[in-house]
């Protein structure tokens, strides 16, 4: 009883979840089609990332109810993962450097 009242804000119609479910199916089909039609290069990468972010956004916002939480929780949970992008930048430059030394070493070694 207490729970039902306290969580009055979580009472969404089932229809909302069915719509999001449908969208996730559509978006997944699109990402599969990206591979099926052998799209290449930047078009492929941009489409993969856009569809990935759209799906992740729908899951976090609606299925995990993040859209209805207070900003304090949203910031505490969603901002820290952005630091991964810093790590990503570091590792991209590091792997470029590793590849360069490998190419130089294996190339010159023969």
């Amino acid at each position: 009883m207490t729970q039902a009242t306290a969580h009055a804000e979580v009472q969404h119609p089932i229809k909302l979840y069915l719509i999001v479910w449908g969208w996730l199916f559509v978006l997944s089909t699109f990402s599969y089609l990206v591979d099926y039609f052998h799209l290449e290069g930047y078009l492929r990468w941009v489409l993969i990332l856009l569809l990935m972010i759209a799906k992740a956004g729908l899951i976090v916002a609606v299925f995990m109810h993040m859209a209805w939480e207070r900003l304090a929780l949203i910031c505490a949970i969603l901002l820290p993962p952005l630091l991964v992008l810093v790590f990503l930048a570091i590792m991209v430059s590091e792997s470029d450097y590793t590849l360069l030394t490998r190419v130089a070493f294996f190339g010159a070694g023969s």
Binding site: V10, Q11, H12, I14, Y17, V20, W21, L24, F25, S28
Partner: peptide, 24 residues
Amino acid sequence: AIMTFVLISSSGTMAMAVNFGYRG
């Protein structure tokens, strides 16, 4: 692709389970 659809479907049923749970 099929595995992806299976997992998305499981998320859909889970979201509805939460909703019905709060309705008792």
